[in-house]
């Protein structure tokens, strides 16, 4: 068994994260302006208003997206907001339905009355544009096979003009399409809970007002959990997240020290 320098870096990361998870702890967080803005937006929605939640992610990012989605769903359900779930990616379907069902149960919300999951439609741009004209024609049946017209909470929901806003839960660039097609063409308010890796991609849209609010990454989930006062896996993981960040910083510094020393001694 041959151990190389990269293996040592791997082992170090695994050790620090496992120890941090075993130690646990829930640090006090100062919520960022982004999280506060999103919280204010959801809190401002009138009880009974309909919000579309789009699960635009794959199974791969569930450890990061799950806490974000749960934090949002808990806030929305606790406020009495009615949710219409959709998915622009096939894999978001199973996850989205389960997350809505589990979280809805925590707040005694009933399927069909307080929330509904319409499922997946392929080609994201086509799905967004088609729903802008008619949601019922785009989704004649929900994820469970119920006819659109038979679902009580969807009575009167024709297109985006009957929806207060869309919240995209994304690990990639699909939220872009909600802004460029849903917002630009049909004027729907777009907000997003996104994987941290996508935060800088969406910054220009947030700055231009095309995106109303954005919460990003596990840290964002932890901040949102503290804002709504409900604990979740975002907060639980923050110590491990901090330790992992510090570990990467130490590796960067270590790599540079070695680099400059080797350059100084002329060995490189």
């Amino acid at each position: 068994m041959k151990i190389e320098s990269r293996h040592l870096a791997f082992i170090g990361l695994a050790v620090v994260v496992v120890i941090a998870m075993l130690v646990g702890g829930r640090p006090d967080l100062t919520p960022s302006a982004d999280s506060v803005r999103m919280h204010e937006y959801i809190a401002s929605l009138a009880p009974g208003s309909v919000v579309m939640v789009s699960f635009d992610h794959e199974a791969s990012s569930l450890p990061e997206i799950g806490p974000l989605a749960k934090a949002f769903l808990r806030h929305a359900f606790s406020r009495g907001v009615k949710l219409v779930g959709v998915s622009l990616l096939a894999e978001g379907t199973g996850i989205g339905y389960r997350l809505m069902e589990e979280t809805g149960r925590e707040y005694d919300c009933e399927y069909g009355k307080d929330f509904v999951f319409l499922g997946f439609k392929p080609q994201w741009v086509a799905a967004i544009v088609a729903m802008g004209e008619s949601i019922s024609k785009t989704y004649p049946e929900d994820y469970l096979g119920n006819t659109y017209q038979d679902i009580p909470m969807l009575a009167g929901v024709v297109n985006y003009s009957d929806v207060a806003g869309v919240v995209s839960i994304a690990d990639g660039s699909l939220t872009t399409h909600w802004m460029e097609y849903g917002h630009a063409r049909y004027g729907i308010t777009v907000s997003a809970f996104v994987a941290a890796a996508m935060v800088t991609t969406y910054d220009p849209y947030l700055a231009s007002g095309q995106m109303h609010a954005m919460v990003g990454g596990l840290r964002g989930a932890a901040e949102y959990e503290s804002l709504i006062g409900v604990g979740g896996s975002g907060g639980r993981a923050m110590l491990a997240q901090t330790v992992a960040h510090l570990y990467v910083i130490v590796l960067i510094i270590l790599g540079n020290v070695v680099y400059f020393r080797s350059r100084h001694t002329g060995r490189k």
Partner: peptide, 15 residues
């Protein structure tokens, strides 16, 4: 931010 994302996924699996 990408480091944050990747670490979050790993932390999720460790959890």
């Amino acid at each position: 931010y990408t480091v944050m994302s990747r670490m979050s996924t790993f932390i999720g699996r460790v959890e």
